[in-house]
């Protein structure tokens, strides 16, 4: 029995090592002076990080990505909370339809989505191509499944309909009941969906590259272009990106757990 546990430990350790090595290598590359003749880096330096934060192209790309992500998520947040609430409370018959629409992007890879978007918006009456709004629209759809599920699940766990009924019974209007009672209760769940969407969009490359590419260089597109020019710089971006994403997922996990545990 003891032997077996050892075996499990060894196996897990190998898999974890396998998953860890690329991360470690990227980190080493980002702090090495030169690393192409020797097995281990020839020397260590922090200059790539310094160069990164003083590179206006990087700052611009980061700013663009943050702008697009935040605008998309704000729009999605407002539109989806209202839509899911209205459908759950007033139009339960449409719930299946809404679910179908919301889960559809899950089954359609972004490269397929891009085809139709480019066809429609590259010419004619809706020439949006090269416009940041095209990306925002596409991103809205890309995070739709996560936002929908997050919001619907939290409305279900807090039993939004009963909450609203109770608020109305106590004399609140529907709007007031929604804003003061339902909304604060679904907030933790909604926050989790928001952060998850944010980390997905931050790492999104396909739509950013195909829809807008060099016209509006976002962080992932910048990363691909930098990879060829300066690997050290590119790897320092990857390291920052990974740390950033890890922090977000840790927060998501903790929030998700407390949102679940808070109501038992």
């Amino acid at each position: 029995m003891k032997n077996r546990l050892l075996w499990h430990k060894a196996l897990t350790a190998i898999v974890l090592l396998y998953l860890f090595i690329p991360l470690l290598a990227t980190f080493l590359y980002s702090i090495s002076t030169d690393w192409y003749r020797t097995v281990l880096p020839e020397g260590y330096t922090g200059k790539w990080y310094g160069e990164l934060v003083s590179d206006p192209r990087f700052i611009d790309a980061l700013g663009r990505t943050l702008f697009v992500c935040i605008v998309t998520i704000l729009i999605s947040l407002v539109v989806m909370v209202i839509t899911v609430f209205a459908v759950t409370v007033y139009l339960p018959r449409l719930e299946r339809l809404l679910q179908g629409i919301a889960m559809l992007p899950y089954a359609v890879p972004p490269v397929v989505t891009a085809v139709g978007l480019i066809t429609i918006y590259s010419q004619g009456p809706f020439a949006l191509s090269g416009s940041v709004w095209l990306v925002i629209g596409a991103y809205f759809v890309a995070i739709l499944p996560y936002m929908y599920q997050g919001i619907r699940n939290s409305m279900r766990t807090v039993d939004a309909i009963s909450l609203l009924d109770a608020a109305e019974l106590l004399g609140a209007s529907k709007l007031k009941g929604f804003w003061l009672v339902v909304f604060p209760n679904i907030l933790p769940g909604v926050l989790v969906a928001t952060l998850l969407s944010f980390s997905i969009l931050f790492g999104e490359f396909v739509l950013a590259n195909l829809l807008i590419g060099g016209h509006y260089e976002m962080i992932q597109v910048y990363l691909v272009r930098r990879m060829e020019e300066n690997g050290h710089l590119a790897s320092s971006i990857v390291v920052c990106y990974f740390i950033f994403i890890s922090i977000i997922s840790a927060v998501v996990l903790r929030l998700g757990r407390s949102a679940k545990e808070g109501r038992t």
């Binding site: 860890f20 690329p22 290598a25 980390s199 790492g203 997922s249």
Partner: peptide, 19 residues
């Protein structure tokens, strides 16, 4: 940890493998 590495895909992952 395993879930965190699942964020490591696409462009950054390709780069790590080049290294």
């Amino acid at each position: 940890f395993s879930n965190m590495t699942s964020n490591f895909a696409g462009v950054p992952l390709a780069f790590a493998y080049v290294v």
